Amino acid sequence: MKRILTGTALGLAMLSGAAAQAEVSYSQTGYLRIGVGESNGGDFAELQLNGAWTNYRLGNESDFYGEFGVNLTNELKNGSKIVGGVRYHLSGDSNDLRVSGEVDANLALREAWLGYAGIGDGALSDSTIWAGRRYYKRKDIHIIDFYYEDYSNFSGFGAGLENVKLGFGDLSVAAFSDQDSTVITLDSRVENIALGEDLFGEVGLAYAVVDEDEPGEDGFAVRGHLQRNNFFGGFLKAGLMYSEGAAWGFFGDGASFATRDRSLTRAQVHGLVPLSERLEMFFVALHQIDDDDGTQTAWSSAGVRPQYTINDNFAVAVEVGFDYVDDEAADETRDLTKATIAGIYTFGKPGFWSRPQLRVFATQGSWSEVGAISNQAAFDDDTTGTTVGVQFETWF
């Protein structure tokens, strides 16, 4: 952490020096969700199936979470730019907000990086060379808050060259290390490959080298992605991904525990389409197989969140999600169905992506057996549960 902060301070000094030629511009970025609720009359407990990597988030987030950052840009006389940013996050348990007692919050540095944009002519005219810690080309599914590809480095250091024009696509290469340098991950990808009208592709390859003192082995990950714009007036994204060894999981920090006998295969499709002038629907379906030397855990998930705009200030959303896990190690299957209805005040900004939103919600869950979910203790020996609450969410 000290090394990152020192580097950030030096970088800011560089920006200040460059300001003698041009004024440095700043822009803020941030996100906040905060709310309270209760499950079956007790503390707010999220409904998540054991073996599922995430859950359907509407009316199902028992934390408060914020991100706050500053981006910096310094345009130089030669047309290039010095760019960079710093971002922190703050998180904690929302149950601390509804009972007397101490609020336990976690503050962590998420981004501290500097780059030089426009490093040359031709293919390099729009490219950036960068170093530090940053969110790097993350891919997420909004309604389950799932980053299904995330080569960001939250605990270590990274560097790369991005957006080199190849004619048929944009090449980016980067290297990441976790805090203790147990895994070095080398990532390359070609984005924005035009495949047809409003259809674009991306291919990626990563190789992870693990320290010899760790139990894992070197490994690789391959990914293919498609994006269709103007899909019935919205968008659709699909991906097929495979990883093994220390590249297991598609993370920038790597997996120092994973040998070549450990693999993860993931397929997903998601998108947002307008069904009418006032009705929009987000949808997702995914399937992944975690194979540990022949013993597999398969997770399947499917869900929708339609949102109906009543007027400029009010909307209603319904979210229904289903998760299913086939766990060979435990010789069992389990499932969870979760449904939420939420009344939304939109502060005069209607639309699925518009924020801020203030929501009042009721969530109902049903699972296959006692112990199938991670927070079973909050529901005694029941296999159903209800959560009610209120939440505020915004980004900027």
Rank of each mutant, 00 (worst) to 15 (best):
R278P: 00
A255N: 15
E212F: 08
A258Q: 05
E212H: 13
M281R: 08
L195H: 09
S263M: 06
G201P: 02
M241P: 05
H270F: 13
G204P: 02
A206V: 02
F231A: 09
G245E: 00
L272A: 03
E217S: 11
Y207V: 02
G252C: 08
Y207Q: 01
D198T: 08
D218C: 04
E277Q: 09
R228I: 02
W248Y: 15
G234S: 10
Q288H: 11
N229D: 06
L275C: 01
F250T: 04
S263Q: 09
L264Q: 11
D261M: 00
L272V: 12
L186S: 09
S276R: 06
Y207H: 10
G254L: 02
F282Y: 14
R189F: 07
H287A: 14
V210N: 01
V284D: 15
R262D: 15
S243N: 14
E202C: 11
F250R: 13
G196C: 06
A206P: 00
F251W: 13
V210D: 02
L275V: 01
E212M: 00
G239M: 07
D290L: 01
R260Y: 00
F250K: 11
H287N: 14
A247I: 08
L195C: 09
A208K: 01
D218F: 02
L279V: 06
E214M: 15
G234E: 09
D253G: 08
V190R: 03
L195D: 11
S263N: 11
G234N: 13
F232Q: 02
E191D: 12
G204F: 10
R266L: 14
D218S: 09
F200V: 11
R228C: 04
D261Q: 00
P215N: 09
E277R: 03
L286Q: 15
R223M: 10
R266H: 15
M241H: 14
S188Q: 10
I289F: 12
E277S: 13
E277Y: 07
F250L: 12
F235H: 08
G219R: 03
Q288L: 13
A255G: 09
L205M: 07
G216M: 02
G252P: 07
D187L: 01
L199H: 04
N229M: 01
T265G: 04
L286F: 13
Q227R: 12
M281P: 08
D198N: 15
D253A: 13
D218Q: 04
G224F: 08
G216V: 03
L236E: 12
A221Q: 05
V190L: 08
F200S: 06
A221I: 04
S276M: 04
D213V: 02
G252F: 07
V273W: 11
A208P: 04
L286A: 14
A221S: 14
S276V: 12
G219T: 13
F220R: 04
R266E: 14
